[in-house]
């Protein structure tokens, strides 16, 4: 009898457990994926002209018969700046193609006409549309240096007297933002240091520290660095020196210094962004204990030093720098 009861229980359990979930399907439709590609709605931009400075955005629209991997490449006719937007969908709309004037490949966009080109993976045809930038994107944050107005009188500049030295602001087509940038180059075969600039807080306000919030988690340091082809590797070192007691004097023995060293091992302009809370103290390139209160206090940064370094045994090194600035809550989106 027990045997029958258990058998009955088993069969009942199995019947209860029978299920087919036809109301849902996992993943995209196979029929769509493997059918021939067709455009159901042509590629367009939502605006003929857009003023990014006022916070406006533009987006693109298109519709296909299936989910595809697509790329929109927007290029400025004059600046040659490029913005790339990628996606994988059946529909291109504001949710996946919104553009706020930011740049993927530098220089940054200018007031200019742009050509937007839509390419689709495994489809030979491409589709284009035009959009005009009536005003460029506003840079929101605390700008330390964009070199547009030359050297600030309160900055301190030092350059070694090596061969082929250049530690000057240049104004030419290389500039990724505005018209000017800092060019750093030279051969210094007796020292790592090629040149440096100190950016004291009093260059920006009467206070002894930079006007930044207290929370190091919300403060990002950003800059644009250009790696020069066929030169030896540059090191760009940023030193954030905190004036913890606010006396206007940086004391290296009992106040924090946080350091961010960048090995410039790429070619072209690159955006560097780091959260202030993630920057550590370095001694000879190695992490070390901070000498002050050991707390990241962005609101107490009294001076930033930017050093251009290179291995003295390697010879000539060169790189370029532009748009040093702090942003809040997120990295710079230039």
């Amino acid at each position: 009898m027990k045997y029958k009861i258990h058998l009955f229980a088993l069969i009942t359990l199995a019947l209860f457990a029978c299920r087919k979930d036809k109301s849902k399907v996992d993943g995209p439709s196979i029929t769509e994926i493997f059918s021939d590609f067709k455009v159901a709605e042509t590629f367009k931009c939502s605006k003929d002209s857009v003023n990014f400075n006022k916070g406006e955005t533009a987006f693109f629209t298109a519709r296909f018969n299936k989910i595809v991997k697509w790329t929109i490449t927007i290029q400025g006719n004059t600046s040659k700046a490029v913005k790339i937007i990628n996606g994988e969908s059946k529909v291109i709309d504001a949710s996946n193609s919104s553009w706020n004037g930011s740049t993927t490949v530098f220089p940054m966009f200018a007031k200019e006409f742009c050509l937007a080109k839509l390419t689709i993976k495994d489809v030979t045809d491409s589709f284009t549309t035009n959009v005009r930038i009536s005003n460029t994107k506003k840079l929101e944050g605390v700008i330390v240096a964009d070199f547009e107005t030359g050297l600030n009188a309160k900055w301190t500049r030092f350059a070694q007297s090596g061969a082929n030295m250049d530690f000057q602001i240049k104004t030419d087509a290389f500039a990724p933002q505005g018209k000017s940038y800092l060019n750093m180059a030279g051969t210094v075969n007796w020292d790592y240091l090629i040149g440096l600039i100190d950016f004291p807080a009093n260059a920006y306000s009467a206070a002894p520290t930079l006007p930044l919030p207290t929370n190091p988690e919300s403060v990002y340091f950003n800059c644009l660095i250009y790696g020069v082809n066929n030169t030896n590797t540059s090191l760009v070192l940023f030193q954030f020196k905190e004036d913890e007691n606010g006396d206007g004097i940086i004391n290296a023995n009992n106040e924090d210094e946080y350091d961010y060293q960048i090995t410039v091992d790429w070619v072209g302009w690159k955006l560097i962004s780091i959260r202030y809370a993630d920057i550590v103290t370095l001694v000879n390139g190695n992490p070390a204990a901070a000498k002050g209160n050991a707390l990241h206090n962005p609101d107490k940064i009294g001076k930033i030093s930017m050093l251009h370094l290179a291995n003295p045994n390697n010879g000539f090194a060169s790189s370029k720098l532009d748009l040093m600035m702090f942003t809040l809550n997120k990295p710079l989106e230039p």
């Binding site: 299920r19 087919k20 979930d21 849902k24 399907v25 996992d26 993943g27 995209p28 439709s29 029929t31």
Partner: peptide, 12 residues
Amino acid sequence: LSEIRGQGTTAL
């Protein structure tokens, strides 16, 4: 055995 939910289609 059978699928319970379709993968890319309602067919199992």
